[in-house]
């Protein structure tokens, strides 16, 4: 049990640092950055204590916001995907989730791909609508959401497989 708590805390701090020091300074093609800190929300152990989980997600987003001077956009987007996460867990992992027996190292690549993809698109859609905050720029929001989602998805899949214990 203690091991899980320690793991979660380390992952929280590590991902925030990785995000603000490296991933927010990539600026691929001038403006594309992967938002990898949401891996924390993907990999958070499935528990019944959803209140703590949602609160931690808020803290995660808020600390990223603080470093990037972006008001509360990351906090809002993180809380939103933390709230809808069970829905997509059920959708992508099916019966295994019902028995609370999902282990990320035991899932197939396509299951993980679908799970990540949905949450990333929701997160980025909320994030960029709030960042741009202008209904006349809907095209820009859609464009940024699509491109950044692809970028984030690739980096997230690579990172999670890099640190997974099982041989792929």
């Amino acid at each position: 049990m203690n091991n899980i708590v320690l793991n979660t805390v380390l992952r929280f701090i590590g991902l925030v640092f990785l995000q603000i020091i490296i991933c927010s300074n990539i600026n691929f093609l001038g403006y594309l950055n992967p938002y990898i800190y949401i891996i924390f929300i993907f990999l958070y152990p499935i528990t019944n204590n959803r209140l703590l989980f949602i609160f931690l997600s808020f803290l995660l987003g808020l600390s990223v916001d603080m470093f990037l001077d972006s008001g509360g956009v990351h906090a809002s987007a993180s809380v939103a995907i933390a709230y809808v996460r069970p829905l997509f867990l059920k959708f992508s992992f099916g019966a295994a989730y019902e028995y609370q027996a999902v282990k990320f190292s035991n899932t197939t690549l396509s299951q993980r791909l679908i799970y990540f993809l949905f949450l990333i698109v929701i997160h980025h859609a909320i994030l960029f609508s709030l960042v741009v905050f202008d209904k006349n720029e809907t095209l820009l929001i859609v464009k940024q959401t699509l491109y950044s989602s692809v970028f984030t998805l690739i980096v997230c899949l690579l990172l999670t497989s890099l640190f997974s214990k099982k041989e792929l």
Binding site: L51, I54, F55, F58, G61, L62, D65, S70, G71, G72, V73, H74, A75, S76, A77, V79, A80, A82, Y83, L130, F133
Partner: peptide, 13 residues
Amino acid sequence: LFLLLFSCGLSLT
């Protein structure tokens, strides 16, 4: 809780 924290984030934005 979700609603509370989400509106918190929105107002900060």
